[in-house]
Design a protein around this nucleic acid. Structure first.
Lengths: 340, 340
DNA sequence: GACTCCCGTGGAAACGTTTCCATGATGTTT
DNA sequence: AAACATCATGGAAACGTTTCCACGGGAGTC
């Protein structure tokens, strides 16, 4: 076995006794080749272990193919689902997927975009962090960019696929209010966060229902476990009269559960807890947690379709909104008269 | 802005009034270029929004760069960690990462390897499913393949980075035995599974400790939530005298918790539960679950180092074993005399 | 002051494809 | 039977790089 370099189209052509153009036609499926020739070429290729180089092809056809995905963190369950969705769609379309994690850092996002552009990917799917300017540049740089799971409202012309977070928070809020809760704590994202639709939906829904919004009950946590825990602890300690907590993310939900447990609060007798993101542990918690399920897989899948399949329709119309689902479990009940 | 096609090195050269070789030198950092010329080239490049094409470069240098990662499922927490580790390492080395999920299907794995080979990636990191023959071929096809998190013992010459599962199961078994358990149920992977080191470690440890192994207590589940649940339910219903359950994976642990709850068994009073994989919900469970933490991130990181950085040392020596950690929480206690 | 040496530079040949065009050999129409 | 459309095929140019080689000139050495 002295096959050091991978075989090239020339080797195959020579071995099969045909021209390179014929070999190319056999592998790309275009043009017409006689059955006999095709067989000879295929046999030669197999013997040489030939595999067309995506580099050569990409160079000629201008565009390496493949699609890039940028998420804050691949270990986050929602991001994981999103990536899985992209992978599923890309596979049906025969494209490969370059994944990278930006850790929520705009500068790193910009770097990644730069690198993907260098790879000449066919499109980029991003769950963006906060820097609009960079993305405005990115939109120029790459043929097609789609936001998924999150948007930067200040970046125009970039289509997006989103979970209907506002709708989800609305139903959760209505559900809690329907149970009789009036003092609902909201654990949300920090002011700098790209989009605070969840907080707005919470406020709007309460307003519509005629429940006054107490600013003191709406707290913003910066990303990360520790900040989430601090926020939850702050809320529940400061306001012992809170009867329910709506956590706008699984990290915040986790924090709420842990803090409640640490404070010896019974769920849902002393305090009801609900959250956005129906992660695996929601069902394993005791009691199981009521949550909003966001269709991460579908978001990724649709985004990928959008970026590859419908270049014409991109940009037209608003964002694609995918429905969420309220999964009622045992963590919410009627409010207790007064804690402590 | 009529910059339809991306600018090429030629455009930059023309615009800066130099030869293309000089532009190449400026961007690749090799050779010598005078400061003045460098500045002129850089300015021209910026003006034209030039970005070197990885395609052209890869073609010339034979090898597109980048590394491929193949896992069964990106949404699995351990796989997610592993991918994150690879991403972290690849970033420091300036490589991009192509990710794909094979869903545990050997045929799909083979397809993905084929595609990655076509991309001329610098290396492949795989958490392999069961077909040795395909991987034997893959090892030939790609410059360097490394197994991570799982191995196929029948494929020689492929280095690997593993979590020390055997050690983890051993400490868990010792821990349970030390608490006084003698009838420990083991929920493990199906016979077809690539490697059953965990089951073997369980058996060996019990044997060493002089505890007889009852075949009836060692059950194998096929992959997936439903099969896991079925296996756990079967075990706990069939053998009411089991005092502890050791689940060899987070899905199996989840199933054990759910089944115990469904059977109204108190944990750990009626039955102790422990598992491999310290996933997020282990701490949120009530009681929090004792678990073996596997260093998924490190496994990915080391595998990436191995595949890119130490091509010389690859293959020598046995697999790289990374230590696991026993995280004791509240789900295990001394055995109860008799259930029911 | 002639020699060597090195530095900055440009030309040109690869790298492995795709694709346009030309060519010869068939088969088809009048 | 002659002209013509059709088909299978090969040659060659391009795609955007890197890199070898050659060339000119300024500085250092004797």
């Amino acid at each position: 076995m002295t096959d050091r370099r991978p075989a090239t189209i020339k080797d195959v052509a020579a071995s099969a006794g045909v021209g390179i153009a014929t070999v190319s036609r056999v592998f790309s499926g275009t043009g017409s080749v006689s059955a006999a020739t095709r067989d000879r070429v295929l046999a030669a290729a197999r013997a040489l272990d030939y595999r067309p180089s995506a580099l050569g092809r990409g160079l000629k056809t201008r565009g390496g193919g493949g699609i890039g995905v940028i998420v804050p963190d691949v270990t986050d369950p929602f991001c994981g689902e999103l990536v899985a969705g992209v992978l599923a769609c890309a596979r049906t379309l025969g494209e490969h997927v370059i994944v990278d994690a930006a850790g929520g850092d705009p500068a790193r996002e910009a770097q990644i975009v730069e690198r993907l552009a260098g790879q000449r990917v066919a499109g980029i799917i991003a769950m963006p962090a906060g820097d609009e300017a960079d993305w405005r540049g990115a939109a120029r740089v790459c043929s097609s960019v789609v936001f998924a799971g999150r948007v930067l409202p200040e970046v125009p012309g970039v289509p997006s696929v989103l979970a209907d977070d506002a709708g989800g928070v609305r139903s959760l809020t209505e559900y809690l209010t329907g149970l009789g809760h009036r003092r609902i704590g909201f654990l949300g994202a920090a002011p700098g966060s790209p989009s605070r639709v969840r907080e707005r939906a919470f406020r709007d829904t309460l307003a519509e229902l005629g429940v006054p919004v107490e600013e003191d009950l709406v707290v913003a946590a910066r990303p990360g476990r520790d900040a989430a825990y601090a926020a939850a602890a702050g809320l529940l300690q400061r306001r012992a009269d809170v009867t329910a907590v709506l956590a706008a993310g699984h990290l915040l939900g986790e924090a709420a559960v842990l803090v409640a447990r640490g404070l010896d609060l019974r769920v849902p007798a002393d305090v009801s807890i609900a959250m956005v993101d129906d992660v695996a542990w929601a069902e394993l918690c005791d009691p199981p947690l009521t949550a909003i399920a966001r269709p991460g897989h579908d978001v990724g899948y649709r985004a990928c379709e959008l970026v590859l399949r419908e270049p014409a329709r991109r940009g037209r119309g608003g964002p694609v909104l995918l429905p969420t689902e309220l999964v009622v479990r045992g963590s919410c009940g009627p409010p207790r008269a007064q804690r402590r």
